[in-house]
Simulated scan of single mutants.
Amino acid sequence: MRIWSIANQKGGVGKTTTVVSLGGLLASQGKRVLLVDLDPHGSLTSYFGQDPDSLDRSLYHLFFEQRHKDKSFIQSVLKPTSLNNVALLPATTSLATLERQVSGQEGMGLVLARSLAQLWEEYDHVLLDTPPILGVLLVNALAACQRLVIPTQTEHLALKGLERMVHTLRMVMRSQNRSLPYTIVPTLFDRRTGASLTTLKEMRRNYQDALWEEAIPVDTRLRDASHEGVFPHQLDAGGRGVRAYRHLLASLEQAAAAEGGG
C-alpha cells in the first residue's frame, strides 16, 4: 500500500482537487483507493455529499476509540464515493477541537499510521488531504505517509506557504529521524498572467530538485466536477486539468517505483 500526503500550510492551493483527481485516476487503473480527510473544514468530505457537521463517525473517533486497532471499526467509519473502488474516511468539524483534547498525550502522532496498518491488504493507495496548519493532524499525515505532495498555487503569496511547508517537513523529519521524499506541484497555473509565469520561474530557481517539471493549469471543469460530486476524469476525461493530473500521477508512480514502492 502506498500512502501519499497532499499538504501545504496555505489554503486554496488545490489540495483537495489534487487528492480527488489523483485518486480517481488511480481507480481508473483498477486500483483500490482510500481517501482520508484530515481537515476540520471537511472539503473532501463535502465533495462527496457528506455533511461534516452531522456524521456520527469520522476520522475524529479514531483518536478516542480504543478499537482504532480493529479493522471492522475503521471500516464502519468509511463512506462511499462515486466509484466503487474508492472509499472515503471522512472528517467532521469536531476535528477542530482535537489539538486541545489530545495535547500532552503520548502516541497521538501515530494514530493514523496505526489505523491504516489495519487496512494494509484492503487498499493499494491511500491519499491524505491535510489541514493548512501544523498540529497533530498534519503530524499524523507526515508520520503515516511515504511521500509528500505539496500543491502550490502559482501566485507570489503562495511561496510563503511553500517555504513554511518545507521548513515543517524538515523539522518533522529531524524529530522522527527519517527521510520523506516530496514533490512540489505548481497549481492554478495561467500562462496568460505575469504572476503565474514569474512565480513558476521562482519555484524553478529555488526548488529545482523537488519541483515537478509541469504545472496544473486553471481549468473550470475541475470545479464543475466538485459541484457534481464526481471525480474529474468522470466528467471530462480529456480535459486539460485531468491530462495534467494524469502526467503528475505517472511522475509520482515512476518516483515511487524507483524508491522501491514509497
Rank of each mutant, 00 (worst) to 15 (best):
207 Y>K: 03
53 D>I: 09
232 P>A: 07
249 L>E: 05
56 D>W: 04
23 G>Q: 10
200 L>D: 06
225 A>I: 13
51 D>F: 02
12 G>M: 02
160 K>I: 14
91 A>H: 08
82 S>P: 03
9 Q>C: 10
250 A>G: 13
39 D>K: 05
241 G>T: 10
133 I>D: 06
41 H>Y: 14
89 L>I: 11
235 L>G: 05
154 T>S: 00
254 Q>W: 10
27 A>Y: 04
244 A>M: 04
39 D>Q: 02
77 V>M: 00
21 S>H: 03
154 T>L: 00
258 A>H: 07
230 V>Q: 01
165 M>G: 09
210 A>R: 00
150 I>T: 07
255 A>Q: 15
186 P>C: 06
39 D>V: 03
148 L>H: 03
209 D>Y: 11
129 D>W: 05
114 R>I: 05
49 G>R: 06
89 L>E: 04
54 S>M: 06
175 S>M: 13
190 D>P: 00
222 L>V: 08
121 E>Q: 14
91 A>M: 08
157 L>E: 10
89 L>P: 04
193 T>C: 04
95 L>N: 06
242 V>M: 01
111 V>Y: 00
107 G>K: 04
85 N>S: 15
164 R>L: 09
37 D>T: 08
80 P>H: 03
141 A>D: 10
55 L>R: 07
231 F>Y: 13
82 S>R: 09
21 S>T: 13
126 V>G: 00
101 Q>I: 12
20 V>C: 10
214 E>R: 10
157 L>A: 15
45 T>W: 00
204 R>H: 08
84 N>M: 14
63 F>D: 03
122 E>C: 09
80 P>E: 05
43 S>N: 15
243 R>G: 07
195 A>N: 09
202 E>F: 09
230 V>Y: 00
260 G>W: 01
220 T>F: 08
207 Y>T: 05
71 K>V: 06
92 T>W: 01
224 D>Q: 13
240 R>C: 04
26 L>D: 05
135 G>L: 10
247 H>A: 13
206 N>K: 14
32 R>Q: 08
35 L>C: 08
227 H>P: 00
34 L>G: 06
97 T>K: 13
237 A>Y: 10
121 E>T: 12
168 T>S: 15
62 L>I: 09
220 T>L: 10
133 I>T: 15
151 P>K: 02
49 G>I: 12
159 L>I: 06
113 A>V: 12
7 A>C: 08
18 T>M: 07
47 Y>L: 01
25 L>A: 07
72 S>C: 03
24 G>I: 13
199 T>C: 07
206 N>D: 15
132 P>K: 06
82 S>W: 10
34 L>D: 08
127 L>K: 08
71 K>F: 02
226 S>R: 14
179 S>F: 14
124 D>F: 07
113 A>Q: 12
35 L>I: 11
178 R>H: 09
70 D>F: 09
139 V>P: 00
29 Q>M: 15
257 A>C: 12
78 L>H: 05
152 T>F: 06
95 L>F: 06
91 A>T: 11
219 D>N: 03
148 L>Y: 05
22 L>M: 13
171 M>W: 11
32 R>T: 06
36 V>F: 04
218 V>N: 01
235 L>H: 07
117 A>R: 14
154 T>I: 00
24 G>N: 05
254 Q>G: 09
167 H>A: 15
38 L>A: 04
256 A>V: 02
259 E>H: 01
235 L>M: 13
218 V>I: 08
74 I>V: 15
2 R>E: 11
177 N>R: 15
131 P>E: 11
128 L>G: 02
216 I>Q: 01
